[in-house]
Amino acid sequence: MKVLELQQVSKRLGKFTLQDISLSIGKEYFILLGPTGAGKSVLIEIIAGIITPDTGSISLNGREITGLPPEKRHIGFLPQDYALFPHLSVMKNIEYGLRIKGKKNKFEVIEISKKLGIEHLLERHPENLSGGEKQRVALARALIVQPELLLLDEPLSAVDLKTKEKLMEELKRVHREFDVPVVHVTHSFLEAGILADRVAVIMEGKIMQIGKIRELLSDATSREVAEFVGVKDLFVELISQLE
């Protein structure tokens, strides 16, 4: 079943151009993988409605959303720095999406906080949270409004390796337990290998290849993808060990 469908989406931003992006994503954990400056973040901002594409169309669960503003898309978005509102407590951050719709519900906040193991943080302010705690709060805030899709922009780039491992497990669990499709942007093979059901390699504004991580490693369809994934021999080993 298609959840998100992009057809020939293009966007020109100064010298950079995102070119004819066509993608079809199901109820899966999907990773957009590519080097810095490839256009990954631009693409998820287009999906979130923050950037308007020049051409192309986007649909979500069969609903045309290309011209819709972010508030009407029902897409959750976690930016790289989580962007927790600094003037609000954790409780009020999580509650925000409900409150502005007049559906303030403390019980729901507590319930989602328990699921994410952050109920002890509710009275704190974002500045007093660790990187991992911030991510969980941002997830709770995005998930409480029951989005049809969750976008994660480099969610693990600002944490140390040990926390990263823990958070990767957390993300996989959230995807499963909340039954929410995920599009996760990263430049890390490790994240793609551990988390992704499928991966799209994006380079210089173009989708180079889409498939399972093993397919990319064993059957790269272009020299650029082969070079991008080929140097990671250790990673190949890691994948075979995991399997």
Binding site: E71, F77, A83, I100, P147
Partner: peptide
């Protein structure tokens, strides 16, 4: 950081509500 406003909008707030909240 404009990200605060962008995230607020993805949580369902209109531009007007984002401005005041």
């Amino acid at each position: 950081n404009p990200r605060f406003e962008q995230v607020a909008r993805t949580l369902g707030a209109t531009q007007f509500k984002v401005f005041f909240t």
